[in-house]
């Protein structure tokens, strides 16, 4: 494991790929690796790209990478696609739209399946970002389907969050506003060659204006990703947002909050894993489930009973 870390820090791409697998699989050996890497992190700028399925996120990332490379920056991409809740399998097809950079040594694309567990995905994404960061990537782009809690979670690790919508007669704004309006630093109306674009842009602007005065008003940018239209303006907006975060001291504040969150998550994760390990080893958990089913026990006292069984020092 030590050697893998050394190789990563020397810029070995195979080591990079292997370490990402390690965190994806929640492999125990990652505990040897992540503390070692952490001091090499904190340099990469993280861009989250979220939006409904089919809104063109992958194409947009592909085009954004052109701007990124033109500015002589390197980038790691994490493309998340849903796993089947039934089999756990997944077809990860984001690479199809990211062919332009398939052989570019300054770009590294990694597809991830959600594997059914939101907490797990969120942790794996965060750790994969750290690995890209330690590897020395200037940017990390995280692309996820923008429906539900997992995305809102992942966005916690992004410095700039881009929300991608499509015209769709304005209805898309309705479906997406819960939770998503708050997280967007930049809104993109992609496929802007379709009818309804102006209306969608106007509706978004109206909603954003209701948020009141802030030092950053999220811009709403029309793009046609497949033709590269509007992508330069999007990249400029990302850079402007970054500049504002850095000059206002907000980036520090955001990252302090993230450090606080990481510490709390790690603490909870450790305690939880420890408790489950003990319970699995010692306690007839399934028997208790049956008792609860039969109403001869309730889950409230059951949980206390379990903790007693593993000698967890509960306060009286």
């Amino acid at each position: 494991m030590r050697q893998l870390v050394q190789e990563l820090l020397q810029g070995n791409r195979r080591a990079l790929a292997r370490l990402i697998s390690l965190v994806e699989n929640d492999d125990k050996r990652k505990a040897e690796v992540l503390p070692e890497l952490y001091r090499h992190t904190g340099k990469a700028y993280v861009i989250g790209i979220t939006g409904s399925p089919g809104s063109g996120k992958s194409s947009l990332v592909d085009r954004l990478l052109e701007s990124v490379r033109r500015d002589e920056l390197t980038a790691g991409v994490i493309a998340v696609d849903p796993s089947s809740p039934f089999t756990g399998g997944a077809i990860l097809g984001d690479r199809i739209r990211m062919q332009e950079h398939a052989l570019d040594p300054g770009v590294f694309i990694r597809s991830m399946g959600t594997r059914g567990n939101l907490g797990g995905l969120s942790r794996a994404t965060r750790e994969a970002i750290q690995i890209f960061d330690a590897f020395g990537m200037d940017l990390v782009m995280v692309e996820t389907v923008g429906v539900g809690q997992s995305e809102v979670d992942i966005v916690k690790y992004a410095d700039t969050t881009v929300v991608v919508l499509t015209p769709a007669g304005g209805d898309s704004v309705q479906t997406i506003k819960a939770g998503i309006m708050e997280i967007g630093d930049i809104f993109v109306v992609n496929k802007a060659d379709y009818p309804g674009t102006e209306r969608t842009v106007a509706e978004l602007n109206a909603m954003l204006d209701m948020k009141g005065a802030e030092d950053w008003r999220a811009p709403v940018l029309p793009t046609v990703a497949v033709r590269g239209e509007g992508v330069d303006r999007l990249w400029e907006a990302v850079l402007r947002h970054r500049e504002l975060l850095e000059s206002s001291g907000r980036l520090q504040a955001v990252r302090r909050e993230r450090a606080r969150q990481e510490l709390a998550d790690q603490l909870e994760h450790l305690v939880k894993s420890w408790i489950w390990e003990k319970i699995r080893a010692r306690v007839p958990y399934e028997e208790m489930v049956e008792k609860i089913m039969a109403r001869s026990m309730d889950p409230y006292s059951g949980a206390y009973r379990l903790l007693e069984e593993i000698d967890f020092p509960l306060p009286q």
């Binding site: 796993s83 089999t87 756990g88 399998g89 997944a90 077809i91 990860l92 097809g93 690479r95 199809i96 062919q99 597809s111 399946g113």
Partner: peptide, 8 residues
């Protein structure tokens, strides 16, 4: 149950 990376 596998993860398939499809490249086109």
């Amino acid at each position: 149950g596998m993860e398939v990376i499809y490249t086109g």
